[in-house]
Design a protein around this nucleic acid. Structure first.
Lengths: 340, 340
DNA sequence: ACTGGCACTCGCTACAGTCGAGTGCCAGAC
DNA sequence: GTCTGGCACTCGACTGTAGCGAGTGCCAGT
């Protein structure tokens, strides 16, 4: 069981070489490229042990070794340190993100930036409504029986929805509704609104009650239950990097998974503070993504987390570099959000 | 030059068979599967002519024939009629689109529906702002020096943008700005606003002028010049259908092109009323898409066009079926928009 | 515990041979 | 003049064989 230091060094060397060259690595090549201080034969013995323990494997009998998912896991957990970002990367991040005018803009720039820096598929979740507070509710009459309700959250998100009222409604009514709703809801967390919204209905005057009931049900339905989460995606073309060697020849399952918002949310939406999550191959619960790895983290102004972001790529990826980039981008985005 | 009826029938048969089987089609197979009433030898002679004219070609000397882009073009223009939709498809369209609550919702449902029905990549442009009229402008104070400006268009689109004012601004000021802006701009077409917006600044009181100037410049910049167009995409996984035979082995260029909004807009954004545009392979101006075909059309309430939608797939696609589906979906979406 | 040596495995490449789908052409029939 | 059957030819796809070489596992020796 016990893997001594040299065996770990061998594993690290295998991972690094394989990530760099994309080819199974043999004992001879290893001692050439790394200063291990021992002969190929010794390395072979170590490799035999590593293989027995499930950290590496041979594609064919007479080929070099390739890390297994388990091998990558060990590498990530114990054998690698997070690479510091290059100054060029730092500059790229800053250049990319300054001048964003809008939450939409921030998210789009971020996702493209991430895709570009990591050369992988990038995913960014919009600030979650559940984690946002209501900053303002605006009601705009569209016709005598229709209102557009616009909710502005403190994270910058803006959601709107058309509401069909039960009957004609006057401008004064709209003003009353707006005032009441704002008084009650501004400053509260979206996830906690249901009772507040209920109270809103109960407390309104009999005359306003039907309108308020309709309004509240729409608010609840749209903002809390429904498609409250949004996602941006970029860099799918990066999946074709590395020919068809990664992803065992077919992008099909990956592309399918990337089309499902639910799947993406599962991947990057469960962020915890100041943690970077790395899911390697098998560890992934989604079958279609068994051949891929995901590096994700949360972001938000200050220490709070309002959403997640991350990248997806082949298990054969540069974990230290990717982790560093994902973290750095998340931090910058957090700062950007804090300014608003 | 002159292609008699039988030669055209041969071309049609070749296209149909190739689309169905994905394999080069030979003279023998042709006479077996279609009632051409002549022998393989005769068909071969016709094929030789068709090849000379550039409508078909041989992948290898001893293989069957495959249509060229030019062949598909002739097929689409003169040899095919638009297939009527199957009842199942009709039902699918209706089922998919009823219950949409929102413009966002409509667009998302539409793009998924299109992808599913055609089994190709679907693209839907949001109603173009340039073709929308202003229905309402809302200004929401976020802090003493910041406003959120929300524009609601008659097509249902809602755009917002944070505005940093030159100095502190009172609630009354905000009300004045809102009133003035709405008086001047509501009902006007976005593409025609620049002079109106200018007038707005000129006519406002000296006290309001700086604020109004800032507001106007943001309005112009955001809504007219900038990312005024939005696009939804779905079905990229369908690109992997048909193995790697289509798209000459690499999805790379296609995926890259699909990431560029500008490219997509060019593809589907130049719609003319009641026309379905078919771009086949080479005809495409975008180099990355030389191996693909695009079927697109405009949509909108009634006879007006507010945006485009379409699908992208291999040149080897079922043109009659795809054209029918794209048209039908566009028509349904138009009806849906007309109801609002 | 490490090393050098050695036999072995097995994927990769090259090459030769066969097969067959499909063609082009031509002479003859309608 | 148009179509057809026949025939020789082409060439990709597939199969089988052989040699090469990277890489391994094992073992005896230091």
């Amino acid at each position: 069981m016990g893997l001594d230091d040299r065996k770990l060094a061998v594993l690290r060397a295998i991972v690094e070489d394989y990530v760099a060259t994309q080819e199974p690595v043999g004992s001879k090549a290893l001692v050439d490229r790394h200063q291990l201080g021992v002969s190929p034969a010794t390395v072979r013995n170590d490799m035999a042990v590593l293989e027995e323990e499930g950290y590496i494997r041979q594609p064919h009998t007479s080929a070099g070794r390739v890390p297994t998912d388990r091998g990558y896991r060990l590498f990530v957990d114990r054998l690698s340190r997070v690479k510091p970002l290059s100054p060029a990367e730092r500059r790229a991040i800053e250049r990319f993100l300054v001048g964003a005018v809008d939450l939409d803009d921030v998210v789009h720039r971020t996702v493209r930036l991430l895709a570009q820096l990591t050369r992988q598929v990038a995913v960014v979740q919009y600030p979650s409504l559940a984690r946002s507070k209501v900053r303002h509710l605006e009601l705009v009459p569209i016709s005598t029986t229709r209102l557009m309700v616009v909710m502005i959250a403190d994270t910058g998100r803006v959601e709107q929805r058309l509401v069909e009222m039960p009957g004609p409604i006057t401008g004064d009514d709209v003003n009353d509704l707006r005032r009441l709703a704002n008084e009650k809801l501004v400053g509260s967390r979206l996830s906690e609104t249901p009772p507040l919204v209920q109270a809103l209905v109960d407390e309104s005057s009999p005359q306003l009650r039907p309108a308020m009931a309709t309004l509240s049900s729409v608010l609840l339905e749209t903002l809390v239950e429904r498609h409250e989460e949004r996602i941006a995606l970029a860099g799918t073309a990066n999946l074709t990097r590395g020919g068809l060697l990664d992803f065992q020849g077919s992008l099909r399952p990956i592309l399918e998974a990337l089309e499902e918002e639910v799947v993406l949310l599962k991947l990057i939406g469960e962020a915890e503070p100041s943690t970077t999550r790395v899911l390697i191959g098998d560890e992934n619960e989604i079958d279609n993504l068994r051949a891929a790895s995901v590096v994700s983290t949360g972001y938000g102004p200050g220490a709070t987390i309002v959403g997640g972001l991350g990248v997806l790529g082949p298990t054969r990826m540069d974990y230290p570099g990717t982790i560093a980039t994902v973290r750095a981008v998340a931090r910058y985005v957090g700062e950007l959000l804090a300014q608003n």
